[in-house]
């Protein structure tokens, strides 16, 4: 047996595999509650990180021919990504627990030797208070880095700070 192959940075030229349509998870005709998930990625100086590869995955609604569950987006010159997707519902947790609706996020970039992972939860969701992951984070400010706020109806924002003040809580998955 062998251990998993080592990661290397995605580098600055990953756009060669970018397909802008992948940022819209509803493009195959999915129906449901459409939402926008957007945010700005910043580095340790607070400077925006353009050209970053942001990937999302959600286990709900279940992936199908009309809904891939997976999306990939570039960040623009302002470091901002934008996905169109369906709002997830609650998902089973371990044991008999229930997870609050959330979307998994992985960020690849020049200067990141491997992808970093976090989650977007939805502010105000009644299940957030009993979500196994959120309740395992003692510091409310840290917990808040995983909770998207609503900019406008259906437009959810999760800004991500890679390093420094307000650093996002990344997850060891």
């Amino acid at each position: 047996m062998s251990t998993a192959t080592a990661s290397q940075t995605i580098g600055p030229y990953w756009h060669l595999i970018e397909d802008e349509s992948w940022a819209d998870l509803t493009r195959f005709g999915a129906t449901g509650e459409r939402i926008i998930l957007t945010g700005t990625i910043r580095d340790g100086d607070g400077a925006p990180c353009p050209g970053t590869c942001v990937e999302i995955w959600q286990a709900d609604p279940a992936a199908s021919d009309s809904f891939p569950g997976f999306g990939r987006a570039n960040t623009d010159a302002d470091g901002t990504f934008r996905f169109v997707t369906l709002r997830p519902g609650p998902m089973p947790g371990l044991g008999n627990t229930l997870q609050a609706p959330h979307i998994a996020i992985r960020i690849f970039a020049r200067g990141l030797m491997a992808g970093v992972v976090t989650r977007a939860y939805f502010e105000g969701d009644a299940l957030n208070d009993s979500d196994p992951l959120l309740t395992s984070i003692d510091d409310p400010a840290l917990r808040g880095t995983l909770v998207a706020g609503q900019d406008a109806p259906g437009v959810w924002r999760l800004d991500i700070r890679l390093q420094g003040d307000g650093e996002t809580l990344f997850l060891d998955v």
């Binding site: 992951l133 650093e167 997850l171 060891d172």
Partner: peptide, 19 residues
Amino acid sequence: STGKRYPLRAPHRMPQTIT
């Protein structure tokens, strides 16, 4: 380029879920 981009805090350990 890693200098201003690597998270300073260790990642939060969590059990893997269906996600």
